[in-house]
């Protein structure tokens, strides 16, 4: 926003006479004076009936969809369900509970005593200028040999994928051209128990209080 010249400001404030204003600043002063005069003029009177016409238009405007949905959801209404449907719904709920219960032989993680462990976005980057495909696999992918594909978006041989992984310790490798299993050169490596190396990824727990 352009500021007026200090001399113009003094003129507008009444501290400097128009005649004392240098000529080169008078057009600017005139422009500001016109604006100030317009703002100070009396309010425009609306013709009769305009206000009423405006309010009729506002009231006739369609209700937003979100409000219509909310009204429908909150309006009490009668719902009829057959007993068979009720039993099926109960069976589905029981089935869902059974599928999510801990398996025999495993123990749930205790986790930080005051925190909710949350998944974290993790970016995998692998440099392979001559590769035609790069994928990442590991415990988070059930060691699927096809892995999760990376993309070389820029065509420069920099392959990238971003995954949401649960907090904890993970092992992974890159699979280049479908057959070459390589650890991440930019990560720590550990023996995989098969005479090769896995890369180590530590995904920290994020505290949510």
């Amino acid at each position: 926003m352009n500021q007026e010249h200090p001399l113009v400001r003094d003129y507008l404030d009444g501290e400097l006479a128009y005649d004392a204003l240098p000529e080169e600043h008078r057009p600017e002063a005139d422009q500001f004076r016109r604006i100030a005069d317009a703002m100070a003029s009396d309010r425009v009177a609306l013709p009769p009936g305009v206000r009423a016409a405006i309010m009729r238009r506002v009231r006739a405007a369609p209700e937003p969809a979100a409000r219509r949905v909310w009204s429908w959801v909150m309006t009490p209404r009668e719902i009829r369900v057959s007993p068979a449907m009720g039993v099926l719904a109960l069976a589905a709920a029981v089935g869902a509970l059974l599928l999510t219960r801990p398996r025999a032989g495993t123990v749930p993680d205790a986790g930080p005593s005051h925190a909710a462990l949350t998944a974290t976005n993790t970016r995998f980057v692998f440099l392979a200028p001559t590769a035609s495909s790069v994928a990442v696999t590991g415990d988070f992918a059930s060691w699927d040999p096809k892995g999760i594909p990376l993309r070389d978006a820029t065509g420069t041989g920099v392959w990238v994928v971003e995954l949401t992984l649960p907090a904890g310790l993970h092992h992974y490798v890159f699979v280049v051209d479908g057959h070459q299993w390589l650890p991440d050169p930019n990560a720590s490596q550990v023996d995989d128990g098969f005479g090769q190396k896995n890369s180590v990824l530590m995904v920290p727990a994020r505290v949510e209080s």
Binding site: G105, T106, V107, S142, W143, H171, W181, G193, F194, Q196
Partner: peptide, 21 residues
């Protein structure tokens, strides 16, 4: 391992890893 309450998930993961490799 299951009877001794040893975590099974890492054992299964190791088996899957070996198969994949």
């Amino acid at each position: 391992a299951g009877r001794d309450s040893i975590p099974l998930r890492p054992l299964e993961a190791k088996a899957l890893e070996g198969t994949a490799k």
